[in-house]
Design a protein around this nucleic acid. Structure first.
Lengths: 187, 187
DNA sequence: ATCACCATGTAAATCGTTACATGATTAT
DNA sequence: ATAATCATGTAACGATTTACATGGTGAT
């Protein structure tokens, strides 16, 4: 039985603690979202499939609200999770970045338009970085409580990743300025 | 008429010079692929759609091989390309990175397994970086010929991007080593 | 001859997002 | 009361990949 990466996001989340589908989404939105996003449209059907496969077990929580269903990882689920985490095969990775794509095709733009594009890219990554920074205190506290430091390290990775693009825009802007110096007076 | 990003990759490529679908794929594979991949399954149907919309014009090249069809961008196509390049709306960007995802869930792994994961991530990005470095001489020559420097800058961006992950793995490895020092002798 | 590469194209499958429907609980 | 949040779920749509089918041309 082949599992998609999204199944492992769910399995990984349940490996940390039992949760409902709604809680998985909430946790993912402040952590894995920045390097592997998931949506409700995937979560609920996948939870059913994983339960049928015996990798997780769901239990209806009585009383509180509308029938909330909390899932826990089973021993076979933990095995599957471990197998994935240590799988020596090729790691999937994919970037779809409209900003860099536009820059690649920006030859036909004038100087100001190019600068505006870089400013727009930088603004976007700064905004996401601020979002991540806002999460950090909570993640820090969580790390101290549970001893799970990787969550915090991963968050710092996310912040550094955004910073890469901010720095990139600065660098590219400087490069464009140099080129424009060289051609000043020519056209 | 709404165009997907993939349509703009094609339009952007044809904005640089007239090409066949096959050539678009070949060019994309050594340039945009690393931040926006496209496949034949998208290219050929999209070329037809763009031609019907009047944004590109195809011409059958007689003689050479099986009916090769070379497309050129039209003035309305150039307008659409410019409109996209300067669109002030939100820039799409998305990362799906299995390596970082696994690291986030690596709490259940032992020390050696975690190191192996980091080594695997580093190896992957070094490999892609080497691929990109191999392309650089050609891109340099192209920049000198056509005066289009952005293609080269974008390639350098790709190389720096891979380096980010290499550095990241180094940093994370050091962090793990520090933690393991602290706990030595405890368990 | 046979392999690599040029070249076009489609069908099926997979993956993922978005929008919608529904309804309870809790805080203001 | 009413807004926000908790909570589950599905249908439709869109995007993308993969595998397949086809056949020419040029080099070894």
């Amino acid at each position: 039985m082949e599992l998609g990466k999204t199944a492992y996001v769910i399995l990984g989340m349940l490996g940390k603690q039992p949760m409902s589908g709604y809680e998985i989404k909430a946790k993912a939105d402040i952590s894995t979202r920045f390097f592997w996003a998931i949506s409700y449209g995937q979560i609920y059907p996948e939870l059913k499939r994983l339960e049928q496969a015996g990798l997780i077990a769901g239990e209806d929580e009585a009383g509180s609200g509308r029938g909330k269903r909390v899932y826990s990882i089973t021993p076979p689920g933990r095995e599957a999770l471990h197998a994935w985490l240590t799988d020596p095969g090729e790691l999937q990775s994919e970037l779809r970045h409209e900003g860099v794509l536009r820059f690649f095709f920006a030859d036909s733009l004038d100087h100001d338009e190019r600068l505006a594009l870089l400013a727009s890219i930088r603004a976007k990554h700064k905004r996401i970085q601020a979002e991540l920074a806002a999460i950090e205190p909570g993640a820090s506290a969580h790390a101290a409580e549970t001893g799970d430091r990787l969550v915090l390290l991963t968050l710092e990775t996310g912040i550094a990743y955004q910073q890469f693009f901010v720095d990139l825009c600065d660098r590219l802007e400087r490069r464009l300025a140099e080129e424009s110096d060289q051609t000043t007076g020519e056209d």
